[in-house]
Amino acid sequence: MNKVKISAKNIDVFYGDKQALFDVSMDMYEKEVTALIGPSGCGKSTFLRCINRMNDVIDICSVKGNVSIDGHDIYDKSIRVESLRENVGMVFQKPNPFPKSIYENIAYGPRIHGMANSKTDIDEIVENSLQKAALFDEVKDRLHQPGTGLSGGQQQRLCIARAISVNPEIILMDEPCSALDPIATAKIEELMNELKKEFTIIIVTHSMQQAARVSTKTGFFHLGKLIEVDSTETIFSNPGNQKTQDYITGRFG
């Protein structure tokens, strides 16, 4: 059993007056894939964005409760949100490469965090990250062409390469395959199996099959509440809660 990497306790999230998450507590383990499933609007993405404090970006959003990584409270005043996000990478629903070259997309993070001193260092980081994201062979001849010119699946792998370029420990993925075709999806899932050897991965997904394929643990959200969290096998074969049962058998959602 791996050790607990991320621990969320009694999380409430409000958008203005509207409460989006109700008292969510959940542990996520090191070097595993944890999947968050549930119908649209159930709060699974909101929960994900608490882990790298992306909700801070939204003015009307307020978070109560406690999230700690390796035992350190990430909402503590002494924590710099930039360093937190350096440590917790994120991949979004829609591929969002910057309108720059492939090379510059990946060099972006290492540059702003001063992780490389010379061009050769950056070259190395770019190549390594692309290798890890299983994209290098496809783009090695056109590193200096715009990242937006790649196909959707390639763009998403570019975004994964960008996320791992700063050596995070955790990668958050917010429905990373929802804009991709099945072949590109299969590639990303394969990649996640590789990446989990090195990173702790939390993935929000709409597809129960995907959760079943890639994850070790699965949490089921419904109407802002965490209904059940357990090993993926248990959730899909023998859930403890009737709502989970109904959802995975397709009775709602």
């Binding site: 992306m54 350096e86 994120m90 829609k94 969002n96 700063v166």
Partner: peptide, 21 residues
């Protein structure tokens, strides 16, 4: 907005995001 979030998620500050993205 996705470009802003992409940059923030890399740990960039607001002004870095503005200048570089």
């Amino acid at each position: 907005q996705s470009l802003r979030e992409g940059s923030y998620a890399m740990g960039a500050t607001k002004s870095e995001t503005i200048r570089k993205v």
